[in-house]
């Protein structure tokens, strides 16, 4: 098991990861924080929509769909075999 950093939109479905960095500013950053995405929050990639984007993520007990533009700005740390 090795820890790697990757943008959230690259997290495979069914995998969990920890939020490490929000690479966005202004309103987008505020919105992500409001969803509870602070450092070390666990997120799980749950389900792709039929066209592959957006993707539904499990965040603090809620299911939130994010477009790849937003998800790519969230850096997470995941265990990869």
């Amino acid at each position: 098991m090795k820890k790697t950093f990757l943008p959230l939109n690259d997290l495979p479905i069914g995998k969990k990861a920890k939020v490490k960095l929000l690479a966005c500013n202004g309103p987008v950053r505020r919105r992500m924080l409001d969803l509870g995405m602070i450092a070390d929050t666990e997120v799980e990639a749950l389900q792709k929509s039929p066209s592959g984007d957006p993707v539904a993520y499990g965040i603090r007990g809620a299911v939130i769909a994010l477009r790849s533009e937003e998800a790519s700005k969230i850096l997470v740390e995941a265990n990869v075999l």
Binding site: P27, V28, R31, M32, L35, P54, A56, A62, V63, I64, A65, L66, R67, E69, E70
Partner: peptide, 11 residues
């Protein structure tokens, strides 16, 4: 351009 959004899928 489309702005950012987060859509909740409620239980």
């Amino acid at each position: 351009l489309p702005s950012s959004f987060a859509l909740e899928l409620p239980p």
